[in-house]
């Protein structure tokens, strides 16, 4: 059986980890490569690096980081943040990234999904969708959730699947940062309506939340940042609990 995946997410700015990490065994808490190695050893199934820097040097710095991570880490990783062209993706994959995540650029130019999928294969194209409920409707938001659109989450998800996305990374902005659990109803609806894997994001606060995302939300993978960075949840403990709940997991 295919296992459910646990994915720590690292926010990167100018080649360094930001938003704080609290690892006593780290020499340098800002070094994404060192953090990636620790996560890979502690049982993470995959990693996501989200680049939030906006400098002109960004592309070069990110490519260098990807190369360093690929040299050290023997599990798959995805890179996202400001990717908007075939050329951007080509550079990241050539340096050793396994997948890329696109978000706002896909909404602005949906044809980009088709182009990337045709050139690199759908398996390495993750479309990230940020959404929140407005008057009972799940609406897609852009630029890290700051800019609302009129686009319906479920319609957009269906469209990106048809255009060639290999996976969907769904972040519920209503849940993100609350530590009150994932958006399981929306997750389940996505999972039932789509035939590509769904990664749940936003709301992880305890181990039960992850279990619920898989059992109630029918997610294929769950992503979180701070609960792992601040060691509120150890991946090993999480996976042992998942196994007790009869969720397929790599231990």
């Amino acid at each position: 059986m295919l296992t459910k995946r646990i994915i720590p997410c690292l926010d990167i700015k100018d080649g360094r980890t930001v938003k704080g990490v609290n690892f006593v065994d780290l020499r340098d808490a800002g070094d994404p490569v060192e953090l990636a190695e620790i996560y890979s050893r502690s049982g993470a199934d995959e990693l996501v690096f989200l680049d939030i820097s906006a400098t002109e040097e960004k592309r070069k710095t990110l490519a260098e980081l990807v190369r360093k991570v690929a040299a050290k880490v023997n599990i798959p990783f995805t890179v996202g943040g400001g990717i908007s062209s075939v050329e951007d993706v080509d550079i990241l994959l050539q340096n050793g990234a396994d997948k890329v995540a696109i978000n706002s650029s896909a909404v602005k130019n949906p044809q980009l999904i088709n182009e990337l999928s045709a050139k690199f294969g759908r398996q390495c194209i993750v479309v990230a969708i940020d959404a929140k409920q407005v008057n009972g409707k799940w609406l897609v938001h852009l630029v890290g959730g700051k800019v609302p659109t009129e686009i319906d989450l479920f319609e957009w998800a269906k469209e990106v699947e048809e255009r060639g996305a290999g996976e969907i990374l769904f972040t519920s902005m209503d849940n993100d940062g609350t530590k009150a659990g994932f958006a399981n109803e929306a997750l389940q609806k996505l999972s039932n309506e789509l035939t590509i894997p769904i990664i749940a994001s936003g709301g992880a606060g305890n181990i039960q939340h992850f279990c619920d995302a898989f059992t109630k939300g029918k997610a294929d993978a769950a992503l979180a940042a701070s609960v792992f960075h601040f060691k509120e949840i150890e991946i090993k403990d999480l996976k042992e609990e998942m196994r007790k709940e009869r969720i397929e997991v790599r231990l």
Binding site: M1, L2, T3, K4, R5, D45, R122, Q123, G166, E167, T195, I196, P197, D220, A221, R250
Partner: peptide, 13 residues
Amino acid sequence: EKKLKVPHIGWNR
């Protein structure tokens, strides 16, 4: 088969 989630992505035995 179409009824499965494809691609088959992740860790399996």
